[in-house]
Simulated assay, not measured.
Amino acid sequence: MHIAYHLTQTALPRASHPKSPHHHTLPQMAACVRLMVSLDLNYRDMEEWLLVTDQVRQALELPKVPDHPTVQRMHDDAHGGR
Rank of each mutant, 00 (worst) to 15 (best):
M1K: 01
M1F: 00
H2E: 15
H2N: 14
I3C: 00
I3R: 12
I3E: 13
A4V: 10
Y5G: 00
Y5F: 05
Y5D: 00
H6S: 11
H6V: 10
L7E: 10
L7V: 02
T8F: 12
T8Y: 14
T8V: 05
Q9V: 00
Q9K: 12
T10N: 09
A11S: 10
A11I: 04
L12S: 06
P13I: 00
R14Y: 06
R14V: 07
A15E: 14
A15C: 14
S16W: 12
S16P: 04
S16Q: 12
H17S: 12
H17L: 07
P18K: 02
K19Q: 11
S20P: 06
P21Y: 03
P21K: 09
H22K: 13
H24M: 01
H24Y: 06
H24G: 04
T25I: 04
T25W: 06
L26Q: 14
P27M: 07
P27I: 05
Q28F: 00
Q28H: 03
M29I: 03
M29D: 02
A30G: 02
A30W: 01
A31P: 01
C32E: 05
C32D: 05
V33P: 06
V33W: 08
L35Y: 09
M36T: 12
M36A: 10
S38T: 13
L39A: 11
L39K: 12
L39P: 02
L39F: 10
L41M: 09
L41I: 07
N42L: 08
N42S: 11
Y43W: 05
Y43A: 09
R44K: 08
D45F: 11
D45I: 08
D45E: 14
M46C: 04
E47W: 01
E47V: 02
E47K: 02
E47S: 01
E48K: 14
E48H: 13
W49E: 13
L50G: 06
L51I: 14
L51S: 15
L51Y: 14
V52R: 15
V52A: 13
V52P: 08
V52W: 11
V52E: 14
Q55D: 15
Q55V: 15
Q55R: 15
R57F: 02
R57L: 05
R57S: 09
Q58N: 14
Q58V: 14
L60C: 08
L60G: 08
L60N: 05
L62K: 01
P63F: 04
P63M: 02
K64R: 15
V65C: 01
V65T: 01
D67S: 09
D67R: 12
D67M: 07
H68M: 08
P69M: 06
P69I: 03
P69N: 07
P69T: 07
T70W: 00
V71K: 04
Q72E: 13
Q72L: 13
Q72S: 11
Q72H: 13
M74V: 02
M74R: 13
H75R: 08
D77S: 06
A78H: 03
A78Y: 00
H79C: 04
H79W: 09
H79K: 08
G80H: 07
G81C: 00
G81N: 00
R82D: 05
